[in-house]
């Protein structure tokens, strides 16, 4: 493999990592609070705001059921307004973030809802405020589940970031399509796929290891 190809691969990997990191961070900032809201504000929950909760739930579902590639095209005006362009790595982070927010929201919601209801009874019986219940009971007890969900989101982001390559988003997907497919360089395609596999592996096992250290629910041998 030529030095040029290697440097192309290195650049593309860096672009992919940047997209995933930026979109992932932004999506966490939006998705975690949204997930908490969904988990806490439904009818009969700790802080009921049923109407708003239901509306946001519908919005989340709508975004999640839009195929990613359609989302990318559909929000081009928004992307332009935010980044000044609709192609390239910066532009690609906009749809990536937007797609990851509802996903993260749902995994956070699920993790929080899975906390044993008896703990809420115990907390209320101890005179906890709703804020204390969230910060001292729900979040610490849900943290392993949240980390597992975020790992899943990061892995999905790697996959989606390869897709934005198809619309000029840069990164490994872009490289694979332009060199591997259009210029028919199978070794380039292979290298791209291998790097993606390794990235996903690292994310998955890193996330799982972190979740396991955080999770004290089971005895570990």
């Amino acid at each position: 493999m030529s030095p040029q190809m290697l440097s192309l691969l290195a650049d593309a990997t860096a672009q992919t990592l940047t997209m995933v990191a930026i979109a992932g961070t932004l999506a966490c900032l939006g998705g975690i609070p949204l997930g908490l809201f969904l988990a806490l504000c439904g009818p009969g929950d700790l802080l009921p705001r049923p109407l708003l909760q239901r509306s946001l739930g519908l919005l989340v579902n709508a975004t999640r059921s839009t195929p990613f590639i359609i989302l990318v095209v559909a929000i081009v005006p928004l992307t332009r307004a935010l980044t000044g362009t609709s192609i390239g790595t910066a532009a690609a982070t906009v749809p990536l973030t937007l797609a990851a927010i509802p996903f993260i929201a749902r995994v956070v919601e699920t993790a929080v809802r899975e906390v044993d209801h008896g703990l809420l009874d115990a907390a209320r019986a101890m005179g906890a405020t709703p804020y204390q219940i969230v910060t001292r009971i729900l979040l610490p007890e849900a943290r392993a589940g949240i980390v597992r969900g975020l790992t899943l989101a990061a892995v999905n982001l790697v996959g989606y970031s390869a897709m934005v390559g198809a619309v000029g988003g840069g990164g490994l997907g872009d490289l694979g399509i332009r060199y591997g497919y259009q210029r028919f360089m199978p070794e380039m395609m292979l290298a791209v796929v291998l790097i993606l596999i390794v990235l996903v592996q690292i994310l998955q096992s890193g996330g799982e290891a972190m979740a396991r250290t955080l999770d004290k629910r089971h005895l570990k041998g």
């Binding site: 209320r124 007890e141 004290k216």
Partner: peptide, 22 residues
């Protein structure tokens, strides 16, 4: 005031309701 009053009423449960992560 109810929350304060609850602090002088202890409660234990059939399934203990302990925090697994503490």
């Amino acid at each position: 005031s109810l929350r304060r009053a609850r602090q002088s009423i202890g409660m234990i449960f059939q399934h203990f309701n302990l925090l697994a992560n503490r």
